[in-house]
Design a protein around this nucleic acid. Structure first.
Length: 497
DNA sequence: CGCATTTGACCAGCGC
DNA sequence: GCGCTGGTCAAATGCG
């Protein structure tokens, strides 16, 4: 569609140019006119060639995306088919059967704000039940509980049932949890749902960078509102608010590592205002990752406690709330892949309810044991992943032709390069999507791709537009369009960085 | 003087 | 229920 429009537009342009040429011709000699026309023709031909080439590339991207989509669709089908067999309770089967298709997508993401949590006393009860009883499958209960209308005190009290795992009780739980899903899912409801999600869910993106200076300038204006000594790290953690706009919800935590020069920046929330150009590199990196989180969570259906891409950092654990999915982009040149990974593993063994994703953008020699990604999407780079433990580490510099030498770059450059890697390369997007999809449980890398594309596109359009990219989720159609726009423009930017 | 930072107090969530 | 911890608030302080 986009391709067709482009050709049509170009045709119009050629006609207009020809008209202009004709009017000019009255004042010039015919020979000069012919030469000029020839020149214009050649130019248009060249442009046409570029457009055709671009269209081919777009088709290629589209095929890749479709391929990803089909692969995910197959995985999803497999999952749906296998899950009832695995499930020990009939209600679980009902839940899955009731949640097939697109509805299931919208049911999966249950996040409430802290204020909601305050009101919803069932939260902690349900969560504990979920954590304790069935780490593999019953997370659905939690998910739905978040989303649903506030339960009445009577309903809440019934949640205090003794935790015997009888089928009847599970059924009762499921009935309490799911009834709202049987209501007609009107457009209004969905919009409300989505807006609520965007308002209440604050994705966390941690960026680990090497920084020799006391503070790291990421281009944005921040106002410090607190400082705290956190457990396990003598260096205080600083809390910042975005000071660009008073209403901006974005917060940042800065934690310096105790034993090296790396610094961990944790961003929470999405900017609701235009950003200075200097801030777009970091912001686009984090928002791309945040978008991935949101999209991934949104399409997760069950299984892995949906909540979590958790960050853990030796000697400075950043707390993670189940309400705040988080992701870490490791941009340090000298990371600690093996130790961090084992650390993550150990941590995860202790806290099975959390899962962790660590994207390592260091040079490839820091990671030495590639494991092929088996999600049926793309193999890209070295990906260290243990699905069982929900721990993934990516090294995106693994393929020689795609290797980016982060070590030689400054922090800003590294961030910019990482941003580029995430946003411009469909393979990166696929890999990221695959990781998130895997970690979160299920879902659509497709949507992740679109979101990333959308994200980049939104930045590309105009700096005057508000930065937040999560709003793109409100319109799938728009996301499609933006994805194409992004793909359309991506090759031009390839020359920039 | 205005703005940013510091810092102790307070609050909420969570584990025991 | 209590204590620990992370996160936030707001008065005090510092700085240009």
């Amino acid at each position: 569609m986009e391709i067709g429009l482009r050709k049509a537009d170009l045709g119009e342009m050629v006609k207009e140019e020809n008209k202009a040429a004709e009017s000019d011709g009255d004042e010039r000699g015919s020979a000069e006119k012919i030469v000029l026309q020839d020149y214009r023709l050649e130019r248009k031909k060249a442009e046409m060639g570029k457009v055709i080439e671009e269209n081919q590339r777009l088709k290629m991207y589209l095929e890749l995306i479709l391929k990803d989509y089909r692969a995910l669709q197959m995985q999803y089908k497999d999952f749906v088919q296998q899950e009832p067999k695995k499930s020990t309770s009939a209600s679980a089967v009902n839940i899955h059967q009731n949640t097939e298709g697109s509805e299931l997508m919208s049911l999966s993401l249950g996040i409430s704000s802290s204020s909601d949590r305050k009101n919803d006393k069932t939260y902690s009860i349900t969560k504990r039940k979920v954590d304790g009883e069935d780490k593999a499958g019953l997370a659905l209960g939690l998910i739905c509980k978040f989303k649903g209308p506030k339960t009445t005190p009577a309903e809440s009290s019934t949640n205090n049932l003794s935790s015997e795992n009888s089928i009847e009780e599970v059924k009762k739980e499921a009935m309490k949890i799911w009834p709202q899903n049987k209501f007609p899912n009107t457009v209004k409801n969905r919009e409300h749902e989505v807006s609520l999600q965007n308002l209440t869910k604050r994705p966390r993106v941690s960026v680990r960078v090497r920084c020799d200076t006391p503070t790291m300038d990421d281009g944005c204006r921040w106002r410090k509102y607190g400082q705290k000594i956190s457990k396990g790290n003598p260096r205080p953690r600083a809390y910042y608010r975005c000071a660009v706009a008073p209403s901006c919800p974005v917060r940042k935590q800065v934690q310096r590592c105790v034993d090296n020069m790396s610094i961990l920046l944790t961003y929470e929330g999405i900017h609701n205002h235009p950003l200075p150009v200097s801030a777009t590199a970091m912001a686009s990196t984090t928002s791309a990752a945040a978008s991935m989180l949101i999209s991934g969570s949104k399409t997760s259906i069950s299984g892995t406690n949906f909540n979590g891409l958790n960050f853990y950092y030796p000697n400075s654990p950043i707390s993670s709330s189940p309400l705040c999915p988080s992701i870490t982009l490791d941009l340090t040149p000298t990371s600690f892949p093996s130790s961090s990974l084992s650390h993550l593993s150990r941590l995860h063994n202790f806290t099975q309810t959390h899962s962790t994703t660590n994207f390592n953008f260091t040079s490839l020699d820091t990671n030495a044991f590639p494991i092929s990604w088996t999600n049926g999407i793309h193999n890209y780079g070295n990906q260290h992943c243990s699905n069982k433990n929900q721990i993934c580490s990516f090294n995106f510099g693994a393929q020689p032709q795609e290797t980016l030498h982060w070590q030689s770059l400054s922090s800003q450059d590294t961030i910019a390069a990482a941003t580029k890697a995430i946003t411009l390369n469909p393979r990166f997007q696929s890999a990221l999507s695959a990781a998130l999809t895997s970690v979160i449980g299920s879902g659509s890398a497709q949507q992740g791709n679109q979101t990333l594309a959308d994200n980049k596109s939104s930045q590309n359009t105009k700096s005057s537009e508000p930065f937040p990219v999560l709003s793109s989720f409100l319109s799938a159609a728009n996301a499609n369009k933006c994805a194409l726009n992004f793909l359309d423009k991506s090759h031009d930017r390839d020359h920039l960085i």
